[in-house]
Design a protein around this nucleic acid. Structure first.
Lengths: 396, 396
DNA sequence: GGGCTTTGTCCTGTGAGTGGAGAAAGTTGA
DNA sequence: TCAACTTTCTCCACTCACAGGACAAAGCCC
């Protein structure tokens, strides 16, 4: 199948494509209700989109009391590739143009092996999805990487946990390999876009999305748009000082949030606690697996282990304290907590909420929901698909 | 003189008005270079603006090697009122449509006396400026208040230091009294807009403007626009925790930034130091005036007083620590320090810089200027004039 | 089958906008 | 002093975007 080459010719067409993406199939009349155009002009633009093949008319909808309408929908053959590269694993998914996930793969990975090795793996996963009949090719791809990105060029810059990626032309290289347009962004920003598109942040214009995984980051959405900062490092809250003269951090400072709470820090603290004999539960798990992760702590807490609960609660307090400051500063309408440690669930959430509601101003917290992300591990890939579709569904 | 009633009829006219505001008088040809319109269409829109009286053609400019051009400029009779209400004083200024200050008054004031008393004073100051021949009337007014504002309605909400103002319809009331359109915003946001329009932040799209006066606030500009947050309290950083279990704060928590450093906190600490005999310089000033302010501390530091220097340095460290976190989070292209304590000057700035450059990520600080505001006490009133002109110079 | 509703198309009028021709008004150099 | 050139501004004809009404098509309900 020849892949999508057409792009919307003007802002109206772009808006129509986004309406069809976000609202699914629609009749011309329904589209007319959502766009500020006369029926005649709308019909002209829809016809032009039909000519390009970006949208198709398939069949008639049920009558709503009068003449039946034609169903207008995005070309069902369009395929987007969403890639979410984490520090220790990668998610690759295929979506249709409505950003529904048709197939999803997850594999372990060490991002420090560098871009060449990682993309070899990603491309083979993309090929596997294609081979399984889900796609004949890709019309666009969104890529999330765990570090700052110079967004217009799609190039990682000075990423702390993946030094070998500095300056690697991800966008250009993948665009060549995949033969389709590619956009690259920070993984946390993509998670925020995912929750905004299909998760808890639907219809919220200003919100924060805190991702707690191996590290900690924060997606910032202001006025409906992701705020990336002047060098693409906005939301990098892992190295905000949480504890004066606290634990030493890999960055060279002391007391960074990430040094006190993150997937990695939690695992480290759990091992320490087990070795010090503070928790039989954790100790037996350590003995069984040789190591501990956030999942073990969550399980121990669920089993009523007091030490595990304390670790979660203290971590939540640290994160909550930092988030409280960000809430005062940014005054968001919603705070979403996501990432690998969401398995810690409501114990973590409760600690965060306590800190934020106690420390931030009442005006900022009065009507502020603090919730867990809805999409879990699919937030990133949906956000990635959304990123490339936003790009392709805008005037050329 | 009849005041301005016309508004730009479309986006082109609005853009032309802003070009003339920001760039001063221009010929049609020069305007054509800055706007994406054909010469013929441009001429039509300029003619329409001339008909409305918003702009005038006065005389011919010098030749640039060919036919001399007509000077097109904003109506020189237009007058904006800029009002910056602080906790303890108020600034009122008159500007022309190019936002140049034609006259400026400053008077002491206690904002806690409530809106009625304050506006009586403001209106009499506006009348005084009018009586001195600077204005025959006002075409619009911008008002800054030291607290959160529900921006669309122009109403203060739950302002901590001016409880009597909660819900007072500032915009509506002043619009009635002055007989012209009025816009209301937080004073810190206006300071940011002032520095953006005519100060150090010209041509910077993402920056933070930290105002340290009686309290501490932060104007946030993202993508060229002020970020106000969902309840208008964005930038309220005075109650971010700077010192765990630190000094008690009026808000009920402990260790808030404002409790450790602000104009008020600095004066309090200086009095304490003087009374404890730590500084002869401060003690003698206390004896002379019965009280101390930031100005005294600045003077003592300039005279080489070690205690005063320590107070400034320690305060700078506190603010710097908080700003460091905000820089990591927001990744701005510039940080502006302003407000009453700018008299503390480079001692303060040095302490702030040290903290930010030490604690924030290199990628975020690599090319980050941290500078004092350029406009001093006029930033607020210029920002206020800019606020109302942005409103009036947009399509009706 | 008649009246009503909904959907979609066709057609015409209006106004936005472009681009070129050319007039107006100046400078420069022989 | 005049010709050649430059810059500014106006005028005009043509194109295209768009609205809005008339109307045809296709359904419903009674």
């Amino acid at each position: 199948m020849r892949r999508m080459t057409a792009r919307p010719a003007n802002a109206h067409q772009a808006k129509l494509l986004r309406l069809l993406r976000d609202g699914g199939p629609n009749s011309r009349a329904q589209l007319g209700d959502q766009i500020d155009l006369s029926r005649s002009k709308l019909a002209v633009e829809v016809d032009r989109l039909l000519e390009t093949g970006l949208v198709v008319a398939d069949g008639l909808a049920a009558s709503r009391g009068g003449r039946r309408s034609h169903n207008i929908r995005l070309n069902p053959g369009l395929r987007f590739l969403g890639v979410d590269i984490g520090a220790t694993s990668v998610d690759v998914a295929v979506t249709n143009a409505e950003l529904e996930i048709l197939g999803h793969l997850n594999q372990p990975l060490d991002v420090r092996e560098g871009p060449v090795a990682v993309f070899e793996q990603v491309l083979s996963m993309a090929a596997k999805l294609r081979a399984s009949g889900l796609a004949e090719g890709y019309d666009g791809a969104g890529i999330g990487v765990p570090g700052p990105v110079r967004f217009p060029e799609g190039v990682p810059v000075a990423p702390p946990i993946m030094p070998g990626w500095d300056g690697f032309p991800v966008r250009e290289a993948l665009s060549q390999e995949l033969g389709c347009p590619v956009m690259v962004d920070n993984d946390v920003n993509l998670m925020a876009m995912g929750e905004q598109h299909a998760g808890v942040a639907r219809s919220v214009g200003d919100f924060l999305c805190v991702k707690i995984g191996t590290g900690i980051g924060c997606g910032i959405v202001a006025g409906g748009d992701v705020h990336r900062g002047v060098t693409g490092s906005a939301g990098d809250i892992g190295h905000i000082q949480a504890v004066p003269d606290g634990r030493p951090c890999a960055c060279g400072n002391r007391g960074c949030l990430e040094a006190h709470f993150s997937g990695a820090a939690l695992a480290r603290d759990a091992v320490e606690a087990a070795q010090q004999g503070l928790s039989d539960e954790l100790a037996s798990r350590l003995a069984a697996n040789g190591t501990l992760t956030a999942v073990d702590v969550a399980a121990a807490a669920a089993a009523g282990d007091a030490t595990a609960l304390d670790l979660i609660r203290e971590g939540g307090n640290r994160v909550g304290q930092v988030i409280a400051g960000l809430v005062s500063f940014f005054n968001p309408g919603l705070v979403v907590i996501g990432g690998g440690v969401t398995g810690l669930g409501h114990n973590l959430l409760a600690a965060i909420r306590t800190q934020v509601y106690r420390q931030s101003l009442p005006l900022a917290t009065g009507n502020l929901p603090i919730v867990l992300g809805e999409l879990g591990p699919t937030a990133g890939v949906i956000g990635a698909a959304r990123l490339i579709s936003d790009h392709l569904f805008s005037p050329a």
